[in-house]
Nucleic acid binder design. Structure first.
Lengths: 187, 187
DNA sequence: ACACGGCTAGACCGATTGGTCCAGTGAGGA
DNA sequence: TCCTCACTGGACCAATCGGTCTAGCCGTGT
């Protein structure tokens, strides 16, 4: 997993993201993480002087960037807002199935349950805001009446949907999400 | 906190629920937990032979029962389904504010991030099913056209809404939830 | 050819983890 | 009165935690 040719720093970030999503910040030990990334302790503390917490923030940011790209890739080629929503939900459903269906949202897994450090929580909200404002942008572009509120609702549906999908072990929940968005009016 | 007259076992369950919600299963050490509950280690392993994991399941079940009562108390005196939803969302918003606005859903905090034990995940879904079927029952009672689907959606909105509320540090998200439920038709 | 510095490798550290074990303790029944 | 047993209190344990530190590898610039 997470192939070898990548530079050590990137390998650390990717495996950290992966493991934190699976077991949460406190649920992953450095030894397990370093073994999975095939990196020695020295490298970790070279690239991330503050150790685990620095790495966690980097991992969450990296995962968030991926999500941001997924949102953009769903809405940009779409002919309507709802078409973008549909594409996004299907992409996320696929991601869910690929993840083994037990992972948590990368940001909440990594940052909300981290040390009670305020900066962790602030960063989490910062990343979430990025997702929401990206959706808001597209909602506005398609002339939706209440772009901010619609973006909020989509975010809520995705977060809650992911949770229920995880409990049910089925991505069907995620695929059914578009029908629950009030803006499903077909203009 | 969690006053003294309660029997030790109950004190353990309550403080476990509280702490797990704040920091997650792996984020709370036994020493911290026992200190908060003012109980010695011997008592923990007397009441819960399997230690932390047994306690976690008991704590999640206890928290879930409280939620179940809150759902019932919201819908039973209501004159319509939407009135019940409104009441429930406001109750939860209050709970959110009282919790310090950083806690996680007690079940996902306790069970989803616990040991990768399957029984943990199964129990989590079992508890969630309890919530959803309670809502389904009331939806059917009020003659809603699609009771199961409506209950699912309410669950999704509550889970996602809680998450966004936590990020934003504001319970307004939760209070606005009823308006996002498609069944908001006023019959 | 040599020195420099980014990076790796892993031994080592004290603190804390979850868990075990047993000697009390004290209320209730015989 | 004494026995019993559910319960408490805490010493103790190996394992693991996150983190520090230093020795050396190796590519690059001069």
């Amino acid at each position: 997993m997470t192939e070898r040719p990548l530079p050590t720093k990137d390998r650390l970030i990717r495996t950290a993201a992966e493991l934190f999503q699976r077991s949460g910040y406190h649920g992953v030990g450095l030894s397990e993480l370093l073994a999975a990334a095939d990196a020695p302790k020295g490298s970790l503390y070279h690239h991330f002087p503050n150790g685990k917490s620095d790495l966690a923030i980097a991992a969450a940011t990296w995962a968030s960037d991926g999500m941001l790209r997924m949102i953009a890739a769903s809405f940009e080629p779409a002919d309507s807002f709802m078409e973008g929503v549909e594409t996004l939900c299907h992409k996320i459903a696929k991601l869910f199935d690929k993840s083994g269906r037990w992972d948590t949202c990368p940001i909440s897994a990594t940052l909300f349950e981290g040390p009670d450090n305020t900066s962790f929580r602030d960063h989490a909200y910062h990343l979430y805001k990025g997702w929401i404002s990206e959706v808001t942008h597209h909602a506005r572009r398609f002339g939706l009446p209440a772009p901010e509120e619609t973006a909020d609702t989509l975010f809520i549906l995705l977060q809650g949907g992911w949770q229920l999908a995880r409990a049910r072990q089925s991505s069907d929940v995620l695929r059914a999400l578009p029908g629950k968005l009030p803006a499903a009016k077909t203009d």
